[in-house]
Design a protein around this nucleic acid. Structure first.
Lengths: 191, 191
DNA sequence: CACATAATCTAGCGTCGCTAGAATCGAACG
DNA sequence: CGTTCGATTCTAGCGACGCTAGATTATGTG
């Protein structure tokens, strides 16, 4: 079975190459620049090869998004380990989320803005995505009554900040102040 | 000058027809279905006529968005008149914002999600957009120290709720609870 | 009625996502 | 080693996109 194994390995390598190249091209010139022709050219294969790995272009972007979920989950979980529950952890998690969005804007876009077939908040949700959300719940306080709704609201606020800033609908100036406000409002006792 | 006036009036009517038809088609089948060919067909003119009114397709969508800003501003301002400042007004304004997004999802998308050349938070910002934002500031409490940052944060949270719900990234169930939480967090004293 | 200008259309360019069918490669076997 | 045949990959092309140049038609003017 050695030959078969080698072929499978080569296919896996090419799959990885496609996903990585798609991300790099998107990071360099935005998702609009990621056309199947350019992507195929960059990996030195013809267009149809892409379609032997992915059903369509959206699936390539979904693969980039999936890798992004894993990275985001890792970053958030790291923060839950390095701090006690409470305002400090909350702040670190929020800051880590914003930092991720800032450092990987196009991956963030694929994960949370562009149309996707990835299921959220369901049985089919990727485990990395569940883990990322769990970090929010933990930061909110896992045993509070409405902690899931609170976590969803916190995530919404962070996501709103990210996309409105990235699209220049709210000014870049004041990002720190808005983060401070957000943490204050979500760590206030009795709410 | 009667002939010239008639021509100008007819041009204005056709402009209005294009914008309205674009919105209706988007509402029926989404923005992807709004192609210049279909739009031209619906108004019984050829494609190039669109380009005698608008520089490109994005400008047509921007015109839909601009009308949306006016409607949103009107809805929010109505709420600032019908209630005293405080938690009640805050809740009404938030609810009105969410109701607008829910009733006109594709217009909302053109206003706040899709790439746009409309300037936010600058001197060139359309007056309707400024008025809508002013309603948030008023609801937060216009004379508070960080009321602009607070209003931006509130808007971010609302926008996050809207887009994450519309893209089915957070469940439809619980919308009321999340709104209640949001109002509580933003009306808590001392924050 | 003839003309000039403005309005509108036909036809086409380059690019997109995607795919059918031809061409090529490579492992297996006589 | 040479042939065969299935798997792999490529060439070429389809229909649709946004947009536009140049031909054509309509319209007001002398």
């Amino acid at each position: 079975m050695s030959i078969v194994e080698r072929k499978e390995r080569q296919r896996a390598e090419r799959y990885y190459l496609i996903v990585t190249t798609a991300r790099e091209l998107a990071e360099a010139e935005g998702w609009d620049a990621v056309t199947t022709r350019r992507l195929a050219g960059l990996i030195d294969y013809s267009q149809p090869v892409l379609y032997s790995h992915f059903k369509n272009k959206a699936e390539i972007m979904a693969a980039v998004a999936t890798k992004g979920f894993e990275e985001l989950a890792a970053r958030l979980e790291a923060e839950t380990l390095n701090a006690d529950a409470g305002p400090q952890m909350l702040r670190k998690i929020c800051a880590a989320y914003l930092e991720f969005a800032d450092s990987r804007p196009v991956v963030y876009e694929a994960m949370f803005v562009l149309p996707t077939k990835i299921k959220f908040a369901s049985e089919e949700t990727p485990s990395a995505l569940r883990a990322a959300f769990a970090a929010f719940v933990k930061a909110i306080g896992p045993d509070r009554q409405e902690s899931v709704f609170s976590a969803e609201l916190l995530w919404s606020a962070l996501h709103g900040l990210v996309v409105l800033m990235q699209s220049e609908r709210i000014p870049a100036i004041g990002a720190e102040d808005r983060l401070n406000l957000l943490v204050r409002k979500f760590s206030a006792d009795g709410v």
